[in-house]
Design a protein around this nucleic acid. Structure first.
Length: 516
RNA sequence: GGGCCUGUAGCUCAACGGUCAGAGCAGGGCGCUCAUAACGCCUUGGUUGGGGGUUCGAAUCCCUCCGGGCCUACCA
């Protein structure tokens, strides 16, 4: 009996997520949470929507809505889809919550006191007609290297050369197409990650049991070039957490907000506070999960995310936590995933390419998707979704093997024993062999789940019951030992062990396929 | 350019320096019938991307070449 804090990377607000997003964070986190609850542990499973940043503002503008309304609506849509997929969050929060505003400002204040925030004046591109500063990738122009006319300010996607917006020929706003751009001076706050480099390096270096994907990305950022660089944590936007130093104003930073990657991970904490608020619980109820000095000393904290989120969770967020000088809970294990691909290419929200959560649920029950996604989770490398594979897997694993077993056992039971499940009779060597076999499978499954090896766990959970089938089969033709297995008493034993096997199968598979 | 991951049977994946490289699916054969055109048993199939090296021993470690993918700090 232990206490487990589990967070899934929080999905961005702009639209319905695709299966790649789902399998990379929310779904495996749900699997783990369900498993641990099933084992009797105390679990706090947190997710939320990530609502700030430029894309949210643009998506709202495109929808012709105020950004707050747009986010509220999309949050409701994502929450509903989460329920549709049976994601068992204890709370599905919002990074735009009042709780997150307060906490984000609190952390910024603590970091400033610790000397970990620097104010930096820099020049950025401002679009007069759009009335906003443009991130590099929102500036379009002709690539000076290859002549491609839709190169982005950060990189030309045609020749892959990295660019600076100043390099672009004929630069224009990617939002409006306006060429009325100018460079303006603006001041931003930087998180001085570089001064924490040694400490982060030692911390990551000690995590020898983490997935290679997680540690290799972190180490690359720590050691590449001049090492870990400081990172801007503010933006010139309207929508976001206003920059404040704790409860105090921050002179010179009026009208600016924190960068979404500063406030998004803090939302894990804030969402737990939102959970307490939603249940009318006192502060202590959520703080016992997050403050080591207030009861979180025995909590094991596991994060789930796609590989694109790894730098923020291995570096920036730990700097926020460590740098605060307060005993907030630091992550114990980071499980990261590669990408799911779709027919050879990437899933793409912007291009509408792939299978999206709403479409998937409209087509087939959530369990079909959960089973396929978890049993094919992109753990060691990217993995591919194809309709053929999905169809074959669902038909074989779920309908043929599992469905048929249940159908068969129940029908047989009814035909021989009526409407009552018979008591177990005498057990013999076959039942003992079955029990031993199941014991081994459960042990293998437990080991895989403990290590959060999703594919392996799914394979162990779904693997049949072949032994159950064997137990209730007549003896093989070559060895006519007829009388014994034909006696009703033996049948009852077989029946009860078969149904035990079925129950066992159900227990193992319930985290994967909660409906069954 | 740099870094990381990856390449194993037709397909999806195991094997993490040590018995003939294994499973599931697909293919072939046989069987069973209590079951869902289901299930069970048996079976075909691999020069582990190519080449070189280290080692008593290499899918595994090293070098090199070829292919696929991701990241590269202002998308999130």
């Amino acid at each position: 009996m232990a206490r487990h804090l589990i967070t899934s990377a929080i999905p961005y607000i702009n639209g319905v997520k695709h299966l790649g997003n789902l399998v990379g964070s929310q779904l495996p986190a749900d699997l783990y949470a369900r498993y641990l609850r099933g084992r009797g542990h105390e679990v706090m499973f947190i997710c939320a929507t990530d609502e700030h940043g430029t894309p949210a503002e643009l998506a709202a503008a495109k929808a012709g809505q105020p950004v707050a309304d747009y986010c509220a609506e999309m949050h409701a849509v994502q929450a509903e889809l989460g329920r549709g997929f049976r994601l068992s969050f204890d709370h599905f929060g919002r990074s735009s919550s009042a709780r997150n505003h307060v906490l984000t400002q609190h952390f910024a204040g603590r970091l400033a006191e610790a000397g970990l925030i620097a104010e930096v004046q820099e020049m950025q591109v401002y679009s007069v007609d759009d009335g906003r500063f443009l991130p590099d990738r929102y500036i379009e122009g002709t690539c000076p290297n290859c002549g491609y006319d839709k190169a982005r300010g950060d990189q030309c996607e045609n020749c892959t050369k990295q660019l600076d917006p100043a390099d672009l020929i004929d630069p224009r706003s990617a939002i409006s197409g306006s060429r009325n751009l100018e460079r303006r001076a603006t001041t931003h706050l930087y998180l001085r990650q570089s001064v924490m480099r040694e400490r982060l390096d030692a911390w990551i270096g000690a995590k020898t049991d983490w997935p290679v994907l997680t540690t290799s990305i972190a180490k690359k950022w720590l050691h590449d070039g001049d090492g870990l660089q400081d990172r801007g944590i503010t933006r010139d936007l309207d929508w976001g957490v206003p920059v404040r130093k704790g409860a105090e104003p921050w002179p010179g930073m009026e009208g600016k907000v924190f960068y979404v990657w500063f406030d998004a991970p803090i939302e894990y904490i804030a969402a737990t506070a939102e959970w307490a608020d939603a249940h009318g619980l006192p502060e202590a109820a959520w703080r016992r999960w997050w403050r080591e000095d207030e009861g979180a000393g025995d909590v094991r904290y596991t994060q789930f995310m796609g590989k694109d989120n790894v730098p923020f969770h291995t570096l920036s967020f730990p700097v926020t936590i460590m740098g605060s000088g307060e005993p907030w809970k630091l992550v114990d294990f980071i499980k990261s995933f590669n990408y799911l691909t779709y027919d050879g290419g990437q899933f793409s929200t912007s291009q509408g390419r792939g299978v999206f959560m709403d479409h998937a649920l409209a087509l087939l029950p959530a369990d079909y998707w959960r089973w396929w996604l978890l049993s094919h989770a992109p753990e060691s490398s990217d993995s591919e979704f194809t309709w053929e594979n999905f169809q074959a897997s669902v038909n074989k694993d779920l309908a043929d093997v599992l469905g048929n077993l249940v159908s068969r056992v129940t029908k047989f039971c009814r035909s021989k024993f009526g409407e009552t499940v018979p008591e177990g009779g005498e057990t013999g060597p076959r039942e003992a062999a079955l029990a031993a076999d199941l014991g081994q499978r459960i042990a293998a499954y437990d080991a895989a789940m403990a290590a959060i090896e999703v594919r392996k766990a799914a394979a162990d959970a779904g693997r049949d019951p072949g032994s159950a089938t064997n137990t209730s089969r007549p003896p093989p033709p070559g060895r006519p030992s007829r009388p014994t297995p034909r006696r009703p008493r033996r049948r009852r034993a077989s029946r009860s062990t078969s149904s035990a096997s079925m129950r066992c199968c159900r227990a193992r598979s319930s985290p994967t396929r909660p409906r069954r």
